[in-house]
């Protein structure tokens, strides 16, 4: 995916300004930055759910990303959109009716890997298990680009670890790319190829995780703190 000079305004307020970057095929990119820095908005733009105010977002060398690309781009929102009365199996059936690239078998395999039952109503699952089920439905798709908004937020450490493992196991990065936003930078860093840091709607920096460690001898959290240029109190 290529993004060029992307800007987005909402009610005359600038949310994102002049972002240019590319997401290489076969990589997992972490999107980090403070609350309100524009991460969610950027993911929605990349998913084609919002339209840029200016600039362009292209997939596969030239296709402009729009809502029609929901069949190639899988997007995991940060909110819980499932009906409490539905079971995992019912959610999977719904996904199958909506997305051509959805495989019920794969979704069930993910659910079984994450050890979450698919015949129980979502309302009766713990928050951790609802997060697991949400990921199972999402990973059931065979998309070209996976976008995840805060997939680990509010989950316990065990749920976070199992979600990370499911991402490693079920996303075949040879054929697709992943962008995920997160605040759990320490925990997520080992699965990332690159990190991009947003600050007040600007792309502050983008770098290869192992290069940051190699050249600067510091991890991504320190890199982020230095670039933000402020002491964390």
């Amino acid at each position: 995916m290529e993004v060029q000079q992307l800007s987005f305004q909402y009610k005359r307020k600038t949310i994102l300004e002049q972002l240019t970057f590319s997401i290489p095929q076969g990589q997992i990119v972490g999107l980090i930055g403070e609350n309100g820095s524009g991460k969610s908005t950027l993911l929605k733009l990349m998913a084609g759910i919002l339209a840029p105010s200016s600039g362009k977002i292209e997939l596969n060398g030239g296709e402009k990303v729009t809502r029609r690309h929901t069949n190639k781009i899988a997007y995991l929102p940060d909110i819980d959109l499932f009906y409490e009365k539905q079971t995992g199996d019912e959610v999977f059936a719904f996904y199958e009716s909506q997305f051509d690239d959805f495989s019920k078998e794969k979704a069930k395999e993910v659910a079984s890997f994450l050890q979450v039952p698919t015949n129980v109503k979502l309302g009766n699952l713990s928050k951790g298990n609802r997060g697991r089920m949400k990921l199972a439905a999402f990973l059931g798709r065979n998309a070209e680009l996976y976008l995840m908004d805060e997939p680990f937020a509010g989950l316990d450490p065990l749920a976070r670890e199992s979600l990370l493992k499911a991402i490693i196991k079920f996303i075949d990065t040879e054929h697709c790319s992943v962008v995920l936003s997160t605040h759990e930078v320490n925990e997520v860093e080992p699965i990332l190829d690159q990190v991009m840091l947003l600050k007040d709607g600007h792309l502050c920096a983008m770098d290869v995780v192992e290069e940051i460690r190699h050249e600067r001898g510091e991890d991504t959290v320190n890199w982020m703190k230095n670039l933000y240029g402020k002491r964390v109190r």
Binding site: Q27, E161, K165, I168, T173, P190, I191, L192, D193
Partner: peptide, 8 residues
């Protein structure tokens, strides 16, 4: 998967 790191 065992070590929890990226395939690359």
């Amino acid at each position: 998967l065992e070590s929890g790191v990226n395939v690359n």
